[in-house]
Design a protein around this nucleic acid. Structure first.
Lengths: 148, 148
DNA sequence: CCAGCATCATTCAGAGTGTGAATCATTCAT
DNA sequence: ATGAATGATTCACACTCTGAATGATGCTGG
């Protein structure tokens, strides 16, 4: 009777479920890393830094998809925690080059550990095959979107 | 050398990817339904209504995971649009029973159509098998979390 | 019956997060 | 050298959401 293809309601769409589950996952992750005095965006900034050097804070802002002014406050806090170092680029003294400190890498790894623990909870209801397929599909989507 | 299991960095976790992709999906969806003068939460409220009657706004707030006071403003706006109707429950005149109007159902269907269109874009990089597996896995996670 | 308490919707002030414009320093091009 | 471009930073503001009053209604024990 019903159209088999494409007629499902809003809650059945991938976009809607990504949105709701993403919010849920983000909230739970936020709770976990609160203990380290970090917000999700702090972890995001450190992640970007860990994947490759950022030429400037503007560069960082672009990669994160946020305003440069937000990077300032995020970096301020991370610097206070000793997770990040600001160094003026000698080649261009307008630029602040951010680098992860050893402590920053430790913090990031703790965040990753929390995320892996959450993963177990989240994927507990999935068969190993399903979990693997989910991870694979999310990886493809992430790459396609140019996200970390 | 490296642990084969569970040693991946933050960006490789399901939780992190759900978070980033969820934000992306939510933002894109928000852009689409802006044309109907709706925010994501408006669509969320209508979705909950479409799935079954809500006894009260408190009930609705609980199902949506937001504060009751937020439901008031969301419902205000939807009522202005003529998408929902507020009716005092005769059995308990403290309660406002919200119901979707015909126009509300139309609006919701338009949102669903936008979401399906976005789905095509999102899953374009996936093989049909992968897309199906993704949908299946997200459905399981959604059900597990008690989400719509 | 009614006095007190619980529950509902609503309003309101405020916290938190993020943006865009203005400012200042530095660099680059003419 | 001077003016335009680019970087970081600050600041005022918008937006969203929450939690604490408030007022209306319902419920219960005496």
């Amino acid at each position: 009777m019903d159209d088999v293809k494409g007629a499902a309601g809003l809650p059945a769409t991938v976009v809607f479920r990504l949105g709701t589950l993403g919010t849920l996952a983000g909230d739970r992750f936020a709770e976990k890393i609160e203990a380290y005095d970090l917000k999700v965006k702090h972890a995001g900034l450190m992640t970007v830094l860990s994947l490759g050097p950022a030429v400037s804070q503007q560069d960082l802002a672009a990669k994160m998809g946020v305003a440069p002014s937000l990077v300032v406050s995020l970096a301020d806090h991370l610097e206070t925690l000793g997770a990040v170092q600001r160094v003026r680029d000698p080649q261009d003294r307008r630029r602040q080059v951010l680098t992860l400190t050893a402590h920053g890498r430790e913090l990031l790894e703790k965040c990753a550990a929390e995320a892996r623990a959450l993963d177990e909870e989240f994927t507990a209801a999935l068969t190993p095959d399903q979990a693997a397929a989910l991870g694979q599909a999310l990886a493809v989507l992430t790459a396609q979107a140019g996200l970390p």
